[in-house]
Amino acid sequence: VTLFVALYDYEARTEDDLSFHKGEKFQILNSSEGDWWEARSLTTGETGYIPSNYVAPV
């Protein structure tokens, strides 16, 4: 499993987005949709879409 870490804070803009804080780690569930990836936060357990340019591989 490839994990990603948040480089910046992000505040959700829609109900499908996932808010997160810098340093939070994610498991990517689906990265085939372009710039927005479906991810699960390893901190909160919540699932939603995150901007791929806000995260980097651990």
Rank of each mutant, 00 (worst) to 15 (best):
S32R: 12
V5Q: 09
A56Q: 13
R40G: 02
T14A: 14
W36N: 06
Y8M: 10
W37I: 06
D16Y: 15
E24G: 02
R13A: 13
T44G: 03
E38D: 05
E11C: 07
S52P: 08
G34S: 13
K25P: 05
D17E: 15
G34K: 15
A56D: 05
Q27N: 08
G45C: 07
L18Y: 04
V55G: 01
R13P: 08
A39S: 03
G48S: 02
A56E: 14
F26V: 04
E33C: 07
E46I: 11
E46L: 14
T47W: 10
P51K: 07
G23W: 05
V1T: 12
T14M: 15
A39D: 00
F4E: 01
K25G: 05
S19V: 03
I50G: 00
T43S: 13
S19I: 02
N30W: 07
G34C: 06
H21M: 14
L18G: 00
K25F: 10
S52V: 09
I28G: 01
Y10F: 10
F26N: 00
G23H: 05
P57H: 06
L42F: 08
D16R: 15
L7Q: 04
T44R: 04
Q27H: 13
L7R: 04
G48E: 00
T47R: 09
V1N: 14
T14I: 06
S52Y: 09
A12H: 06
E24A: 05
L7I: 13
Y8C: 06
F4M: 11
E15M: 14
L42G: 03
L3F: 09
H21K: 14
T44V: 02
S19L: 02
S31I: 12
P51E: 02
G45E: 05
D9F: 04
Y10G: 02
K22R: 11
N30Q: 08
D16K: 14
S41W: 02
G45S: 06
T44L: 02
D9S: 09
L3P: 05
E24V: 04
P57M: 09
S32M: 15
I28Q: 02
P51Y: 07
P57R: 07
D17W: 11
Y8V: 08
R40E: 09
K25Q: 11
W37M: 06
L42R: 03
L42K: 04
F20D: 00
P57D: 05
E24W: 08
V58I: 14
V1D: 10
A39W: 01
E15L: 10
Y54D: 02
R40T: 15
E11G: 06
P57Y: 06
L18I: 10
W36K: 15
E15I: 11
F4S: 03
A56I: 12
F20K: 00
R13M: 15
W36A: 05
V1H: 14
A6K: 00
T43L: 15
T43A: 12
A39K: 00
A56G: 09
Q27S: 08
S52I: 07
Y49W: 14
F20N: 00
W37Y: 09
K25W: 13
S19K: 04
N30S: 14
E15F: 12
L29M: 10
L29R: 05
W36Q: 07
P51V: 02
R13K: 12
V58L: 12
E15N: 11
R40L: 13
V55H: 01
Y8W: 15
V55A: 03
W37V: 06
R40V: 10
L3S: 06
A56Y: 10
S41Q: 06
F4C: 06
S32H: 12
F20G: 00
D17T: 13
G23R: 02
T47P: 02
S31F: 15
G48F: 03
H21I: 14
D17R: 12
A56K: 14
S19W: 03
A56S: 10
E33A: 15
V55K: 01
A12Q: 06
T43F: 10
Y8F: 12
G34R: 13
Q27K: 07
N53R: 12
S32G: 15
Y49F: 11
K22N: 04
E24R: 01
L42P: 03
F20L: 05
D16N: 13
